[in-house]
């Protein structure tokens, strides 16, 4: 009886020790959060996949929070909740720069490294911004068009006026185009109002007024299908006079159009890389070394400049097109 009691006690101690060490491992496993708007969209699913994959390499865990629509205040609440939960770092894409600033500042003040990715909140205290540098992306697009069409490129631009991001893209585009094809010209610019249907209307008129246009540069995500329809309306969707449409989108129908040869190319941002780099920046900030961050004392080193994750100009036959057509399910 005594022996049985001793054995039971020994087993109990052993089990407790095992459970205790498992629980300790659970407690010491670092946890990071990502906050997005349009949760469930392919773009941010790519970002979160990158975030998750990077975290897995150091045994950290992650969670994705945010609204399924554009509600920036819901994002702000999600940031607050993650701070209360005690996460080691937060990557947030700002649905609205000013709405998010308060929550980002509060998180940083609480010692939780917080950065923005894809959409910035520049006036907040965020660690840094990880995403596409619009000028550089525009430059890459302009250079690609210049290399393809040379001095013969006559470009029509479809955009929404007055937005800083689009203005930077256009400036970069002009510089990139001029860098390889100084004789190339931007012939006309139209306001598509961010509406796909409006894009078809104004691009059709633009092509009518400027028959010399042989390229349409879509400076944001919405006008591509409208611009393509415009080329059909003026009978220049195919044949010798075909107008090349340069999209700015990773949406599957656009990628399918690239594969089918309907679009000339698309400017592909790298949302997966945004997720990967966001995690590494947060991890670095959460693990201070002998020198603190120059901009955020008490936190580990991160670059003092924003991090450009770059773009790729995708054309028909590029293996990345097929890969991007199968976005991760989260």
């Amino acid at each position: 009886m005594m022996k049985l009691g001793t054995r039971l006690a020994a087993v109990t101690v052993a089990v407790s020790t095992l459970l205790g060490s498992a629980s300790y491992a659970q407690d010491t496993q670092e946890h990071y959060g990502m906050v997005v708007f349009l949760k469930g969209s392919e773009f941010f699913n790519w970002s979160y996949a990158g975030f998750q994959d990077a975290a897995a390499t150091v045994g950290a865990t992650t969670e994705l929070q945010g609204p399924a629509d554009w509600d920036a205040s819901a994002e702000a609440r999600a940031v607050d909740q993650l701070v209360a939960k005690g996460v080691k770092g937060i990557a947030v894409t700002a649905g609205d720069a000013d709405t998010l600033a308060g929550s980002i500042n509060a998180a940083m003040a609480a010692g939780v490294p917080t950065l923005t990715f894809d959409s910035d909140s520049p006036n907040s205290d965020r660690l840094l911004f990880v995403g596409t540098n619009n000028y550089n992306a525009g430059f890459a697009a302009g250079k690609a068009i210049g290399e393809e069409h040379g001095d013969e490129a006559r470009v029509g631009v479809s955009l929404i006026p007055g937005l800083d991001s689009i203005t930077s893209r256009l400036e970069g585009f002009k510089a990139g185009l001029a860098s390889v094809a100084p004789g190339a010209q931007i012939v006309a610019t139209v306001n598509d109002e961010g509406d796909l249907q409006k894009a078809e209307t104004v691009n059709t008129a633009m092509l009518q007024a400027n028959p010399e246009i042989n390229v349409i540069f879509c400076a944001h995500g919405n006008p591509a299908t409208g611009a393509l329809s415009a080329t059909r309306n003026v009978g220049r969707m195919e044949g010798a006079n075909k107008i090349s449409v340069l999209a700015w989108s990773l949406d599957v129908p656009i990628l399918q159009g690239i594969e089918d040869g309907e679009y000339g190319a698309t400017v592909a941002q790298n949302p997966y890389m945004m997720g990967v780099m966001s995690f590494w920046m947060l991890w670095s900030a959460a693990h201070p070394t002998q020198f603190d961050s120059l901009t955020s004392p008490g936190m580990g080193q991160v670059p003092t400049a924003d991090l450009d994750t770059g773009v790729k100009i995708l054309r028909q036959g590029d293996p990345a097109v097929q890969a991007l057509m199968s976005p991760p399910k989260i």
Partner: peptide
């Protein structure tokens, strides 16, 4: 808002 939530803002082909 409902349309955006249903599609997460993406094209539905």
């Amino acid at each position: 808002g409902f349309a955006t939530v249903l599609t997460t803002g993406q094209y539905v082909s």
